[in-house]
Design a protein around this nucleic acid. Sequence first.
DNA 1: GCTTCCAGTGGGAGCGCTCCCAACCTCCGA
DNA 2: TCGGAGGTTGGGAGCGCTCCCACTGGAAGC
Lengths: 337, 337
Amino acid sequence: MAEDPPRRQPTLDEVAEHAGVSRSVASRALNNAPHVSRAKREAVQRAVRQLGYVPNPTARALATRQTGAAALVVSGEDPSIFADPFFAQVIVGATAALEDADLHLMLCLAASDRGRKRVAELLRSRGADGVMLMALREDDPLLPLAEETRMPVVFGGRPVGATPRWYVDVDNVGGAREATEHLVARGRTRVAALCGRLDTEAGRARYRGYRDALLAAGLDPFPPQEGDFTEPSGAAAMAALLANHPDVDGVFAANDNMAAGALRTLRKAGRLVPDDVAVVGFDDLAVAQIADPPLTTVHQPIQALGREMARMLVSLVNGQEPTPLILPTHLVVRSSA
Amino acid sequence: MAEDPPRRQPTLDEVAEHAGVSRSVASRALNNAPHVSRAKREAVQRAVRQLGYVPNPTARALATRQTGAAALVVSGEDPSIFADPFFAQVIVGATAALEDADLHLMLCLAASDRGRKRVAELLRSRGADGVMLMALREDDPLLPLAEETRMPVVFGGRPVGATPRWYVDVDNVGGAREATEHLVARGRTRVAALCGRLDTEAGRARYRGYRDALLAAGLDPFPPQEGDFTEPSGAAAMAALLANHPDVDGVFAANDNMAAGALRTLRKAGRLVPDDVAVVGFDDLAVAQIADPPLTTVHQPIQALGREMARMLVSLVNGQEPTPLILPTHLVVRSSA
DNA sequence: GCTTCCAGTGGGAGCGCTCCCAACCTCCGA
DNA sequence: TCGGAGGTTGGGAGCGCTCCCACTGGAAGC
């Protein structure tokens, strides 16, 4: 099996020649388009096999003006935001849907200036067929770029203060309301909220849902005790809360991380969960099950979020006009409330 | 600002014409290559600005035979493996290094047959400039594909039973040894190992390190109590261990997830950590700090792993001959041991 | 004065594919 | 018998860029 000539990949022309047909016919056979006789089609297939031909995606991209890739852009001021297992779930969902459309996933972390610059260039150069954007801060520098670009952009979650043309979101308000109602139904009357970043729509919406539920129950909402969706911020917020309102008996945390932090603080303070203080989280990530006690939490379908974003993008790329989507959430009752 | 003509992106030819130079000069100016007079260089830059020109990456890729992308392939029999925060860290590190080389990251989850097929095609079609492969199971179907491909492949971790030409790994044996030595130094004499999958090199190497340390200390290693790197498997392994060896006083877990599971089982069994049983984990992920008590664990530089993989790939793409890398690990002492 | 050299320049041939279109062939109804 | 209709076929023109190369003219060297 000598391979002396450092032979390149065979090209379509070579396949055509080898099969005794023209390049056009070979191309059609390859993309199983019509207007190819059975005999030639098979001849091409044989040649492809014999030569080990694989189409060159770049050349195809240039000719079709389609890159065959979709970008997932995750924005945030530092890369650690991406460590949130949330994104891994989104990626798993998106990948599944992208696979169906035979698109590749380009992952862009726009966490540094350099990263943002590259995203900007991607957007301007049409380096992908479309973009899934997770940029939820109010002042995110990518938002204006997303407006300008001429490629389809699907948002994951809605940014504060703007409703994009295409987005997939989860029902944050409804989930938070259900969580809070659950606490109230368990007889809690002094229910506080450990908020996530209030410059994100998710953070605000969850507080809104909490507030709605308490008002509807004739109880007084607490002012937002703000954190940043991390475990330490949850622990800190809980500590502050205990200091100001030692009689709190229910806590709605903006996500599981913060709920886990709250649990830690409560344990340290000698408060029993759920007996003294009931805690509800949001997300239903792995941490919710591992927590001690296991967290009652609002399940949000994160993989579905990714999947639907990708599907929406695919349909946009195919020239359709999808409508925004809000995915349902539901409460998962465990032991913490 | 009428934009009636649905004008395409301007091309390099248009820039050249607008600047009153030839395409060649424009190209050279753009890539700031030599052999362009100052005046024309500036004229081109002006034209670029006025026309809002952005080079078409696909055309460039076709001409240069470089895609401008590196693929990160994560293999596993089901997508949930990717939920491990480990990968997020790898991605963060890889992204940083790739940014420096101005390469994009293509993320491929080879968890379904479909996914593996697409990876195979990517490998054969040179759809990227290189591949970072995380496929560590002994019988991983991607391993033979990686052998065949004509594009550079850097492994993250070593697969069982084979030493790839290029890889970055962490010092699993050394870390496990240090962790076990720590337990011994604390006076533990009945130290068991909660292993990860023994069909991965990491799982084996960590057990080997544990074994070495105990033998060196003149103690008897326990037979491997196998899990699969997940929290529940750690809990189960710990339960089995307690049943067979109620007198165990030290546990080395193959990773933090399993250690967290062990903690849960021990708490349920009424064993105090670290008083009755000391526990050491491996990874030093977020869960280690959140665990109760916080885990003493072996820190492995996961972002660095990703970064070095990307760097190695970049140097391969640039025609250099990097050497494999093994990154150091070190023990982080917290309360669990 | 004459070569020699080289920065600067633009023409043109690709890179490997898709797709339009004209040419062709066969078969059928009128 | 003849004129389509409709399925096949291959030529050729791109897609937008890079890069080789031949050519120019002025500066440097002798």
